[in-house]
């Protein structure tokens, strides 16, 4: 495997349980994502999308197969090394935003910088600038409870971008948003992917994302099938 790809998954499987009760959530999946690519994974509920995203996101370890992030074999790493990979190279955007309720918008972004040993004024300034670039300058000191869904997702995107990761992983990023806001968020993710040469993996049911995706995959019963796209062609 080479570092030409930000993400490389090779025959990755994830099995939960043992013996007769074993369930194969992801089965022999392979995938490669280059810098600047937007990869859409479609699939019905229970198809293994979230498990696959967890594997790519270094939240779960595969039962078999190999996953490389920026050329580093993360499937062979021990549990203690994975948080550093997540902090430095991965950004997460969730359907339910997952902002920390006690922290303001700017603090929600600042905290991931703190986790990456960036503190004080520098961290605050970076968090503020990111939120301003996403049109959130008027909501910096707002708690999540006071923000709309779209605003929450912008904060979540700012948080995902805070440490300038090479890879963005988004789980149903438009799932909790209205149509107009969903469009804006998709455009935002595209902009991030293209301008920052970031790889974006989106797990979604939202068919609008098909138009911007460079690769589309269908995940069914844990198996991944690639679809030819205009962007891909």
């Amino acid at each position: 495997m080479s570092a030409t790809y930000h993400i490389e998954a090779h025959e990755v499987s994830k099995v939960y349980g043992k013996g007769e009760t074993a369930v194969t959530a992801v089965n022999q999946v392979s995938l490669q994502v280059k810098p600047g690519e937007i990869c859409l994974i479609l699939g019905p509920s229970g198809s293994g999308k979230t498990t696959f995203l967890s594997l790519i996101g270094c939240l779960l370890k595969p039962t078999s197969g190999k996953i490389s992030i920026l050329g580093r074999d993360v499937s062979a790493m021990n549990e203690k090394s994975l948080p550093a990979i997540r902090r430095q190279h991965l950004g997460f955007v969730f359907q339910s935003f997952n902002l920390l309720e006690a922290l303001t918008a700017v603090e929600n972004v600042e905290i991931v910088l703190n986790l990456n040993h960036r503190r004080g004024k520098e961290a605050k300034q970076r968090a503020t600038e990111l939120l301003q670039s996403l049109g959130m300058s008027h909501r910096l000191s707002y708690l999540p409870g006071k923000l709309s869904g779209g605003e929450k997702q912008r904060v979540a995107i700012a948080r995902a971008l805070a440490n300038d990761p090479a890879i963005l992983l988004a789980d149903e990023p438009t799932g909790s948003l209205d149509s107009k806001t969903g469009h804006e968020i998709i455009a935002l993710l595209c902009r991030m992917a293209q301008s920052g040469r970031k790889s974006v993996i989106i797990v979604s049911h939202d068919l609008r994302i098909r138009d911007v995706a460079t690769q589309i995959f269908h995940l069914e019963d844990g198996r991944l099938r690639k679809e030819q796209t205009q962007n891909n062609l």
């Binding site: 996101g57 939240l59 990979i85 997540r86 430095q88 997460f92």
Partner: peptide, 8 residues
């Protein structure tokens, strides 16, 4: 969430 974001 914090763990997912890389908190040890």
């Amino acid at each position: 969430v914090l763990k997912a974001l890389g908190a040890g």
